[in-house]
Amino acid sequence: MTDLFAIRDLSVTYGAGAPAVERVSFTVGAREVVALLGANGAGKSSIMKALAGLVPASGELLFEGEPVSALSTRQRVARGIVYVPEGRAIVGSLTVRENLILGGYQVHAARRRERMAMVLELFPEIASKVERAAWRLSGGEQQMLAIGRGLMAGPKLLLLDEPSLGLAPLLVRRVFDRLAGIRADGDLAIILVEQNLQMTMRLADGIHFLRSGRIVGHRHRDDLRTGAARQEVIDAYLGAASHHAA
């Protein structure tokens, strides 16, 4: 199987400091969910922003076999690489409907209407509030709007940055239920950055562990059942050696 997205030697450096991401390489297959796990400051969000074309980065990015590293965010969205940022970044003063239109900005009008119907069916929580200003939605609804907005572009790869951030556990479960549903229905691959271990392990096919901007390990979904693997996950999560985690 050819990879949907191949990331080779991706590095991100802000200013003159040490690189935030250093020579990170991994691949994402079609319909695969790849999670990036690491402590705060490990470089997860920098990787996501670099893949979305929002921060300058070096390295090679091949999407469906074609180089995309020189493309702007707009061009990447058109190709099907869509970023759902941490903190949701919905436009509060726009209505739910307008936020969704924004997500499908580059899509043909008829297709946009189809997708909007699909998204609203997927997220009934926001379907009843389409004319409401987005800032008036609850945190969970805003997250659903952010994911829905991402889906409006018709992505092949969704870059999902901390979808559980700031949400109550019940809502986290609901958001991940929806994500599992989207995954089962559609032809969509996901790169997931998430702090919630349980949810990550539920959704991801594989997990890359990050520390100080480097990938320090990888586990396949099936390997995560062993105690040692779980310990590795916890270490990566805490960004510390195992005896600190105990």
């Binding site: 929002l54 965010t73 436009v91 726009l94 924004l102 572009a153």
Partner: peptide, 23 residues
């Protein structure tokens, strides 16, 4: 209009506008 939505998105949250693929 769609252009108006883009304008309002830009003035409220340029980052979100960029993420959505607006020029």
């Amino acid at each position: 209009t769609k252009l108006g939505i883009a304008f309002r998105a830009m003035s409220d949250n340029p980052f979100a506008a960029e993420v959505c693929g607006l020029s």
